[in-house]
Computed example of a mutant assay.
Amino acid sequence: MKRRAKPPRLSALAIGRDNHFNLIRFLAAVAVLVSHAWPLALGRGTVEPLKTALGYSLGELAVFVFFGLSGFFIAGSYDRQGSALSFVTARAARLLPGLAVSILIVALIMGPLVSRLDAGTYLSHPDMARFIVQNILLFKPQYTLPGVFTTNPYPTVEGSIWTLAHEVACYALILFVGLVGALSRRRVMAVLLALYLIAWVVAPYLGDLIHPRLLQTRLLSLPFVFGASCWIWRDYITLRWPFVVGLIVLTWAVHATVFAFPMLALAVTYTSLWAGYCKLDPLLMFNRVGDYSYGIYIYAMPLQGLVVWVWGDMTPALNIALALPLTLLCAVSSWHWIERPALTFAREGQRGSLITRRIAPRR
């Protein structure tokens, strides 16, 4: 009798690009758009149906997916590059060009067209300049523009970008761990992980000593750290559907306890990795079209507000139907004209620097 083949370790799966992570991130970004349709169409405080059932909105769950996968791939990125400069360059190229172009389009093209202020007053308004600078730099993001969407049920121009500053904070955590040489030393990482978990538990009890934004980072960093841990201990992890089911059942079992969010973060991260490496050949074709998730994420909310401004009162379903095609158009354009060229430029610059260092004469 033949023995069943042992399922491959995560380290064996995490080789090459034959996976479904572009598709998963795409669906997560669309889920954020769908989730935002309720408050944008019906007003602030409107509860999305899924949040009533699960305690978390579809958009919140999608953000946890983003952070869990990001932890895995960002830890892997630093591990492979082994250079702080290359790591920072790659991360900046992935985030900033697409974000900067989207903010400029929203502020300088869409804003003057829909603002209740005349163009001169709008363009000279200090809040317009702050919107551009603070949102591109991710420093105290500003979510409104002068006179824009003021009659909408939810008069906000931007919203989703609030998570990007926390994403950068998580990048900084990986950078720190990499710089001190701990990322490839599992025993040291185990100690650091234990210290992180202790700090995670203690932080809410420190009251005013912890800034509210740090508490938000604390929340989102947990799936990120779980994802990074999966990369660090990838030689010991297997991805199996019974484990997925078990984690989901455990998450439901502890939903009314202090372990609710940690179990949810772990379940979401593990399930996302399992789904990403469940190779279904027809779905792999999606990788040929590009990675449109970031473009969807940064363009969705302004365009959802725009369709409300143009067509007036609407249901969440109509908001999704009108905004999704426009968002996809902007996301496709952003990937092919902004994001991918920026990533290519960054990679070529890194290769050039590496070649220069190799051939430079020794002194």
Rank of each mutant, 00 (worst) to 15 (best):
F72N: 00
L13M: 13
L113I: 05
Y292M: 15
L23T: 01
D291K: 08
Y78M: 13
V332P: 00
L96C: 08
N287Q: 09
S334R: 01
L33F: 07
R357D: 12
S70F: 07
A317N: 10
K51I: 06
F26D: 04
R351A: 14
V180C: 10
A93N: 05
S70V: 08
P212T: 03
G82A: 06
I232F: 01
T217R: 00
R213C: 04
R358G: 12
I105V: 15
L343T: 04
D291S: 09
L69S: 00
T356C: 11
R187M: 10
W241C: 14
L195I: 11
A260E: 14
F26L: 14
F286P: 07
V289L: 15
L239R: 01
I338P: 02
A29E: 01
L329G: 13
Q304D: 07
L247P: 03
G290R: 06
I132N: 01
T46D: 04
I105F: 14
N19W: 06
S86D: 15
P361E: 04
L209R: 15
V114M: 07
L54Q: 05
F149P: 00
A37R: 00
L42Y: 13
A323Y: 02
L23P: 02
H125C: 08
L306T: 07
L273I: 11
L324I: 09
G71M: 10
G45H: 02
W241R: 15
L273F: 03
L113Q: 11
S124P: 05
V308E: 01
S115E: 02
I109W: 12
S272R: 02
R185A: 12
P97V: 11
I132T: 02
R91N: 08
T315R: 14
L164H: 05
W200M: 10
K2T: 11
T251V: 04
P39E: 08
P262C: 10
A5G: 10
I198C: 13
R80W: 04
I320M: 09
F259L: 15
M285K: 12
H255K: 15
L96R: 05
L283K: 07
P7W: 07
A28G: 02
I161S: 06
A169E: 08
S293M: 03
F149T: 01
T121P: 01
V244F: 09
V180I: 15
G181H: 04
L183Q: 03
S184C: 08
P7F: 08
R9C: 12
H211A: 14
M263C: 15
A5I: 09
T151N: 11
L96A: 12
S11T: 14
L58W: 00
V88R: 09
D18F: 09
R240V: 11
F26R: 01
A165I: 12
V106K: 00
R363I: 12
R17L: 14
A62Y: 02
I74R: 00
F87K: 01
G82R: 09
Q81G: 14
V307A: 05
R363E: 13
L179K: 09
A182H: 04
L40C: 04
L175F: 07
I105H: 09
R240G: 09
R240Y: 04
G181L: 05
G349L: 11
T156A: 10
Q304H: 06
L175K: 02
V133E: 03
P153I: 05
F224Y: 13
A260L: 03
L173G: 11
W231S: 01
Y292C: 12
